[in-house]
Nucleic acid binder design. Structure first.
Lengths: 344, 344
DNA sequence: GATAAGCGTGCAAACGTTTGGCCTTTTGCC
DNA sequence: GGCAAAAGGCCAAACGTTTGCACGCTTATC
């Protein structure tokens, strides 16, 4: 082995006085080699600071022990900022992957991009996790391609009808139902909803359904006038709240389809001299880190990103290993802080 | 090509009526193949949905076009929460890597871990980025090993004496100097400092230096009584503030070595009936997302994570390509919000 | 004292690329 | 028309593993 070059298994073999094949087996603790040999080989390997070449190993064994995380960014969002909720997910997924002995390849995708992008990644990983506020409708075709190519993938998001592949999501309906229920229990009757009610984003649509359901059950009419579309950004929440205010619509509470929008909305209310929670109660969804630091601390629907990351990774690995996996929904929990007061 | 199997370059070659070598060249737009052939090959490849096998390609060309991000977690920190500042860095690094055509492998490391961990990753990437609140002293040995093995790596953090490798960091001294200066300009004279002043974390030490420098320049004595150690967590900031309060030390302002600690400190002050900024002014460091949402919005030292991510990636790539790189420092900027008022 | 069984190793063939070198055409030039 | 040069393509050798198979050497069995 010339000095400076990376040692190969042949170098180890030579130094340990065995064949290269034996080195390979010994290093992976194969029961086919004697304990003695194994110890000998491993000690030489350590001494030479030898590391298996992953490319060669993966090529030969046709697997990568790598998971890919495809993060679909909101195309409208500011380039420099990532949705904090996904950031939290990312962190937890990374951890879960590591705990399961997998590497994690992270890649940002623009929804608008050439669908080949996903395949590209797929050749470098055994499976992939798709993360994004699921405008899955617009890339259903891509998913179909993936499924067709026998790719292993799991989607973070709601279970959408006819959607190929497996998914894991949060029970959005239940979450927003609980949040709305909370507002109703506080005596509110005129409750607005900020967040898209189009099929463009199934998450928000489902959250809207939870809201509707709660109101309906309580015998409160769902007033279309009190629902305003917005996408998942602070500025959108701000604008939506402005609109509500400008139109002079009457309401004492708002449920926002995400914390980011809630933050924007609260800002708008404050700027217009409305007290939160005094004049208007606000609930959010996601429980991003900022939610607890805000003024007032935001009452919101908590999603367990730790559990989600763990399950996403574990289910994907099952998929890779050929085991059956059920798509499922995680239960959210309402965390009550200070952004909601009783209707007076 | 049996149905269901992934097509190889041989399949493309066969269908396009050329040799496999030509396929390889055509797909990479080599000038060695005619335009005609190239188009033909590429169209067949697209048609068969062919994707180059990265493992094979990397093995042969001995490079991976992959960067590894090693995130060193504070061993004391809560398992479920990642330091928001690093999360922001992570996002920006991912983006920068993608823009430069590199994949990003993300890996969490425990400081306490076997140092082999790093090597392990290194065989899967062309270079690596080390990210963490730099207790580099404690793994200087690992860094030396890396350097010795001719690994390409760049460290996020201050330039520490004798530290092998390249680094990129924020000018911590300047940042805290500016923050302290701001407080002094507002008339404060009894200014406390929360954050470790030990060499355990060079970042905090440098920030403390900036603080000392500002006070000294202003002719204000640096009172050791007003400095309290804390590590980078909300709870530590909380405890440090408590301690300051309990001991009955007199102060009208606090500079915190990180936003997380500032958040904790503010919480402690509020709980003890102190108004921020009325009774005590607080500045932080990092400008994490939550800083602007807090009550009051936190005046803090902003680090440009977007630029940092970009530079980290670009410098690392230069290193990989054998170009010279200078370790350097990024200029922080003070962002003034509402957590500091004039001393009355 | 053969024969069978087991255990530990070595041999060599993949895995799917990239790439240096060689061979055939074409093309340009006198 | 002959020759050199350039263009375009093919051959085959890597890259460093994993793994099926064959081979020897012990040890147990009849």
């Amino acid at each position: 082995m010339p000095k400076g070059d990376k040692p190969t298994s042949f170098d180890i073999a030579y130094m340990a006085g065995v064949s290269q094949a034996t080195v390979s087996r010994a290093l992976r603790n194969s029961p086919l080699v004697s304990k003695e040999t194994r110890i000998k080989v491993q000690s030489v390997a350590r001494q030479l600071n030898y590391k298996v070449d992953k490319n060669a190993a993966n090529l030969r064994s046709q697997q990568t022990r790598t998971l890919a995380l495809l993060l679909f960014e909101d195309p409208t969002s500011d380039d420099s900022l990532i949705n904090p909720f996904f950031l939290a997910m990312l962190g937890n997924i990374t951890r879960a992957a590591a705990r399961n002995g997998y590497d994690l390849l992270v890649s940002f995708q623009q929804l608008s991009e050439d669908w080949h992008g996903e395949y590209e990644v797929s050749s470098r990983a055994d499976g992939m996790i798709l993360l994004g506020y699921g405008d899955y409708v617009s890339y259903a075709e891509k998913l179909a391609h993936l499924a067709e190519a026998n790719a292993h993938f799991i989607i973070w998001g709601p279970m959408v009808e006819d959607q190929p592949g497996h998914s894991l999501g949060c029970d959005n309906v239940q979450g927003c139902y609980d949040a709305s229920r909370h507002l109703l229990d506080l005596g509110h009757r005129r409750i607005a909803f900020i967040g898209g009610a189009s099929e463009h984003c199934p998450e928000f649509l489902l959250r809207y359904q939870g809201y509707s359901k709660a109101l309906t059950e309580a015998g409160t009419p769902v007033d279309k006038e009190l629902q305003v579309d917005a996408d998942n950004q602070e500025i959108s929440g701000y604008q939506a709240a402005q609109q509500l205010l400008e139109d002079g619509r009457e309401f004492s509470a708002v449920v926002c389809a995400s914390d980011l929008m809630a933050i924007g909305a609260i800002k708008a209310f404050k700027e217009n001299g409305k007290q939160v929670p005094g004049d208007v109660a606000v609930v959010g969804f996601d429980d991003i880190p900022a939610a607890s630091y805000m003024n007032p601390p935001l009452t919101t629907v908590h999603q367990d990103t730790n559990l989600a990351g763990k399950l996403l990774v574990e289910n994907l690995i099952k998929l890779i290993e050929g085991e059956a996996v059920e798509s499922s929904l995680l239960a959210p929990s309402l965390v009550i802080r200070e952004s909601c007061a009783s209707e007076t």
